[in-house]
Design a protein around this nucleic acid. Structure first.
Lengths: 134, 134
DNA sequence: CGGTATCCCGAGGGATACTG
DNA sequence: CAGTATCCCTCGGGATACCG
């Protein structure tokens, strides 16, 4: 009996199927949200659309380079929509697409798990890093 | 009104708090599961404990080096337990800790999202990559 | 069987300066 | 304001060989 039958099944999806080892669509979706900034940006856009500068200020430790690049990636994947208003100076608004919004719940579950258990993890690390026995 | 108040709140957790920009515990938990192999290994251990060699065979495209390294990382974080049986030749069993098992549900939700929507994402990418207008 | 030890490469990503 | 363009460097991770 599996302690978690659903994910044990789901693992079949993650395993390399057939002979092509890299052709797993779930893996590259995970790769996207696994990069350094994507989840942070999605979270920053969860509440409302925001402009480039507003995102830059909301996440102070991102560079403009990575901000642009990550937003482009999310836009390419259809998770974020980009709207340009031809004002002077130009203003560009980013908002979650419907697809992006459907990602919020899974992310929320994950982030809550992380928030609840990061203390346990920190303790586990300390234990592990202790000099075993002098 | 926020379309997703809970995560909009949760985003406060992700924002750099105080003056120390990197000191966000949730971020490094995400960094762990964001690496190339951790989720795959957790999924592989969801059903039952497995030995080193079994994991190697279950995930054919991982190297022994990364298998060891990722397992160590998961063990360090207290997500995986490692048991050595002093047989000859030695056998080592890896199993999810209780903490690791509590991560299964969040992961499952995420993986199911990815499985359901990867087709939409693939289509969005094709559209985005089309030469805009000749 | 279950790992270490090395070597090495490319991509991810930071810093800075420039532009429409 | 909202980006590009460069330069540069770390480091995740693959390949290979060896070990108790």
């Amino acid at each position: 009996m599996s302690p978690h039958p659903k994910l044990a099944d789901t693992f079949q999806i993650l395993e390399t199927h057939g002979d092509h080892p890299i052709e797993c669509p779930v893996r590259d979706v995970l790769a996207r949200i696994g990069d350094k900034w994507s989840v942070l940006l999605i979270a920053a856009l969860a509440g409302e659309p925001r402009r480039f500068g507003a995102l830059d200020r909301a996440i102070p430790d991102i560079s403009k380079r990575m901000l642009t690049q990550t937003l482009r990636g999310l836009e390419r994947d259809g998770l974020v929509e980009r709207n340009v208003f031809p004002t002077k100076p130009p203003s560009v608004e980013y908002r979650l697409s419907p697809l992006g919004q459907r990602l919020l719940d899974p992310l929320c579950v994950l982030i809550e798990w992380a928030d609840e258990h990061h203390a346990s993890i920190a303790m586990a690390r300390e234990r592990f890093d202790k000099p075993p026995r002098p």
